[in-house]
Amino acid sequence: MSIKTIIFPVRDPAAAGALYRAVLGVEPYVDEPYYVGFRVGDQEIGLDPNGHHHGMTGPVGYCHVDDVRAILHTAVAAGWHTRQDAKDVGAGRLAAVVEDLNGNVLGLLQR
């Protein structure tokens, strides 16, 4: 398991997309009002214009997992707190977010 996706909350996806294009040197594979996504190698960089509305205060790294609900259950049993329960984020993908005892967040993404 590794962190393969990092989502940044943004207020202006068009302006943020232009900034990330310049730095990453690639065009987004998706450029929609609800999400701008870049792939650099096997790393995904996502810009979420709704992130602030969902409580994101900064970037969230997502581990790709086979079963979000099972890993979420294991994480909570180990002492993590659920910040976002497993939900469909589109195209059949499920995502959840957990928070450790220090307020650090980690996302779980099932493709």
Rank of each mutant, 00 (worst) to 15 (best):
residue 1 M to F: 09
residue 1 M to V: 13
residue 2 S to A: 12
residue 2 S to T: 13
residue 5 T to V: 14
residue 6 I to G: 02
residue 6 I to W: 03
residue 6 I to N: 02
residue 7 I to H: 01
residue 7 I to C: 10
residue 8 F to E: 04
residue 8 F to A: 03
residue 8 F to V: 04
residue 8 F to K: 04
residue 8 F to G: 04
residue 10 V to M: 14
residue 10 V to S: 12
residue 12 D to N: 15
residue 14 A to T: 14
residue 17 G to W: 14
residue 17 G to R: 12
residue 18 A to I: 07
residue 19 L to E: 13
residue 19 L to V: 14
residue 20 Y to H: 07
residue 20 Y to V: 14
residue 21 R to Q: 12
residue 22 A to W: 11
residue 23 V to L: 15
residue 23 V to Q: 08
residue 23 V to H: 06
residue 24 L to D: 04
residue 26 V to Q: 05
residue 28 P to K: 05
residue 28 P to T: 07
residue 29 Y to H: 07
residue 30 V to M: 15
residue 31 D to Y: 11
residue 31 D to Q: 14
residue 32 E to G: 01
residue 32 E to V: 12
residue 32 E to K: 09
residue 34 Y to C: 03
residue 35 Y to W: 15
residue 35 Y to A: 06
residue 38 F to Y: 12
residue 40 V to Y: 00
residue 40 V to A: 05
residue 41 G to L: 03
residue 41 G to D: 03
residue 44 E to A: 14
residue 44 E to K: 11
residue 44 E to Y: 08
residue 46 G to S: 11
residue 46 G to D: 07
residue 46 G to E: 05
residue 47 L to K: 09
residue 47 L to E: 04
residue 47 L to H: 10
residue 47 L to Q: 05
residue 47 L to N: 08
residue 48 D to W: 15
residue 49 P to F: 14
residue 50 N to R: 13
residue 51 G to V: 10
residue 52 H to Y: 15
residue 52 H to D: 00
residue 53 H to C: 02
residue 53 H to T: 11
residue 53 H to D: 15
residue 56 M to Q: 13
residue 58 G to S: 11
residue 59 P to M: 11
residue 59 P to S: 10
residue 60 V to N: 05
residue 60 V to Y: 09
residue 61 G to N: 07
residue 61 G to Y: 07
residue 64 H to R: 14
residue 64 H to T: 14
residue 65 V to S: 06
residue 66 D to K: 05
residue 68 V to G: 03
residue 68 V to A: 15
residue 69 R to T: 02
residue 69 R to M: 02
residue 70 A to R: 10
residue 70 A to C: 02
residue 71 I to L: 10
residue 71 I to Y: 01
residue 72 L to F: 01
residue 72 L to D: 03
residue 72 L to T: 03
residue 72 L to S: 01
residue 73 H to S: 08
residue 74 T to Y: 00
residue 75 A to G: 03
residue 75 A to D: 01
residue 75 A to H: 02
residue 76 V to T: 09
residue 76 V to F: 00
residue 77 A to Q: 10
residue 78 A to V: 01
residue 78 A to F: 10
residue 78 A to P: 00
residue 78 A to N: 04
residue 80 W to M: 02
residue 80 W to G: 00
residue 81 H to Q: 15
residue 83 R to S: 06
residue 84 Q to E: 06
residue 86 A to P: 15
residue 86 A to K: 03
residue 86 A to R: 07
residue 88 D to A: 03
residue 88 D to R: 08
residue 90 G to L: 11
residue 90 G to I: 13
residue 91 A to K: 10
residue 91 A to E: 15
residue 92 G to C: 10
residue 93 R to M: 09
residue 94 L to S: 05
residue 94 L to W: 10
residue 95 A to Y: 00
residue 96 A to I: 00
residue 96 A to W: 05
residue 97 V to D: 02
residue 98 V to Y: 04
residue 98 V to E: 01
residue 99 E to S: 06
residue 99 E to N: 04
residue 100 D to R: 05
residue 102 N to D: 13
residue 102 N to R: 09
residue 103 G to Y: 10
residue 103 G to K: 12
residue 103 G to F: 08
residue 104 N to G: 02
residue 105 V to N: 02
residue 108 L to E: 04
residue 109 L to C: 08
residue 109 L to S: 10
residue 110 Q to A: 01
residue 110 Q to F: 01
residue 111 R to E: 13
